[in-house]
Design a protein around this nucleic acid. Structure first.
Length: 452
RNA sequence: GCGAUCGUAGCUCAGUUGGUUAGAGCGCCGGUUUGUGGUACCGGAGGUCGGGGGUUCGAGACCCCUCGAUCGCCCCA
């Protein structure tokens, strides 16, 4: 709110502070990606979040929106123009060249982290956002595309996301793409005056984009626009057939999307997006954003950075968008709540908690405030087991009593948890007597572990 | 860059056609039921109603400007 305006700086527009349930969903996406990429033997890599501006300007394309108006660029103290990465691929290509990773080619890389684009924020779109990313560099074969897409498909399915479909297209090789582009320009130029204002501009800058315009005025002319298929070379056709055949064999469902083009200049051959199905719950959750994962083949990119001709293919997916589709991920139930009733049992509690945590039980300590508040908070934390420490003992060498409470409805304690608690304490805190970890039991604490 | 909607307590919100000292729930702090089941009861702290200007006898409500948020266009993940 505004109260602290004069004192507290505000967060940068389009950045997010992620906490609680949302943070759990975010982590679930990353963890799932990490697990799956290992199954496909993609190697983990880390890259700088900023690069020389030319890394992006030269590879992504000067006329793209990203380069022309969305980059966070600045001069460092040496006067060099640097840019916060707006995407992963260009920086990875640079790293491939400057580190001599040709020696590893073909190399399968996986990474994730923040990206930055100066855009107007809205649902599913931020100025600092996060992606998971997978690339195969140095592989010209369609089998690489297939494996990469199979991995994308598995990530999405293991996330439990439904109602999302792989939309697949080919842009052909460089010559095919140029011939098709020229034909499109000619087609749309003939009806230029009837196109939307935006598409009239696109005609000069980015004619392929007219194909997926949402404007009805444009859509009339999209239907009979030239198709890429008519311009594909035999090689490009064969390549695409090999990709689709491989996807079928791998059990990856896909649909042909003839008008799917990707925004960046460097794409060749395979281009794809995973898009929620019309009317699905996923589509609702994403608002007006549609693509959750996108990518393609970029055989020309590495050359544009001064490297040798190097085939490559990759994809990236928005973690925030995926997280919106995975549903609530709880923080996991608390295993044990420890309530220390007396000042004299606080140290006992401080000793007990880590013993249990070393047994991989989650433990939360309740040792401040009034007794009633301690119990209120402990119960509200919804632990499986409530352990109460108090010093009400009349036996001289006893240091206290631990009472066991189950907070499950049937007052039973999960036997594995009970075993872990007993193992943690065995021989350390008490000997003889009642050692049963069950609801309602009181256990006499006879030895002071702190004194040993 | 353009458009629409919205800013009241830490959070979610209420606040009649403008009318005394601005409200609730949750959360927080303290107390009681003589200490134990997602409680109950009592009390307390916390707001210059985003900010600035204007209209009015009187503005949280109306007007202008500004800042911010949300959603959409463009574009993208």
């Amino acid at each position: 709110m505004g109260k602290n305006n004069s004192k507290t700086p505000q967060a940068i527009r389009g950045t997010q502070d992620i906490f609680g349930a949302e943070a759990e969903s975010f982590a679930f996406v990353v963890e799932t990606f990490e697990r799956v990429r290992k199954l496909y033997r993609f190697r983990r890599a880390e890259f700088p979040v900023f690069e020389k501006t030319e890394v992006f300007a030269r590879s992504i394309g000067e006329t793209t929106d990203i380069v022309s108006k969305e980059m966070y660029s600045f001069e460092d103290r040496g006067g060099e123009s640097l840019t916060l990465r707006p995407e992963f691929t260009a920086g990875i290509a640079r790293a491939y060249l400057t580190n001599g990773w040709q020696q590893h080619a073909p190399v399968k890389l996986a990474t994730h982290g923040p990206l930055f684009r100066y855009e107007r924020p809205q649902k599913g779109r931020y100025r600092q956002f996060h992606q998971i990313d997978a690339e195969i560099i140095g592989a010209a074969e369609p089998q690489a595309d297939v494996e990469l897409l199979a991995m994308a498909d598995q990530v999405i399915r293991e996330l439990g996301i439904e109602g999302v479909t792989l939309h697949l297209n080919t842009l052909g090789d460089g010559d095919s793409r140029e011939a098709w582009r020229a034909a499109l320009v000619e087609h749309f130029r003939s009806v230029k005056d009837e196109l939307s204002e935006e598409s009239q501009e696109r005609l000069e800058k980015n004619p392929l984009r007219i194909l997926d315009s949402k404007d009805r005025r444009d859509q009339r002319f999209v239907a009979d626009a030239p198709k890429i298929d008519a311009y594909l070379s035999d090689e490009a056709r064969a390549f695409f057939d090999a990709v689709t055949g491989g996807l079928d064999a791998a059990g990856v469902k896909w649909v042909r999307a003839e008008s799917l083009v990707r925004g960046l200049d460097y794409y060749r051959h395979t281009a794809f997006e995973f898009i929620p199905d019309e009317g699905s719950a996923a589509a609702d959750a994403l608002g007006s954003q549609s693509t959750i994962l996108g990518g393609g083949r970029y055989d020309g990119l590495i050359e544009s950075l001064g490297g040798p001709p190097t085939p490559a293919v990759g994809w990236a997916a928005g973690i925030e968008r995926l997280a919106m589709l995975v549903g609530e991920k709880g923080e996991g139930r608390l295993n044990v709540a420890v309530v220390s009733e007396a000042e004299s049992t606080d140290l006992l509690a401080a000793w007990l908690a880590p013993q249990l945590r070393w047994k991989q039980l989650s433990v939360e300590l309740f040792n401040v405030g009034g007794l009633r508040k301690r119990y209120d908070k402990a119960v509200k934390a919804n632990p499986q087991v409530l352990l109460v420490l108090d010093d009400k003992t009349s036996v001289p060498h006893q240091i206290g009593v631990m009472r066991v409470r189950s907070l499950t409805h049937n007052k039973s304690i999960d036997p594995d948890t009970a075993d872990l608690i007993r193992d943690a304490l065995e021989g350390k805190l008490w000997l003889g007597g009642n050692r049963i970890i069950q609801h309602g039991h009181e256990i006499e604490l006879e030895h002071d572990p702190l004194a040993e």
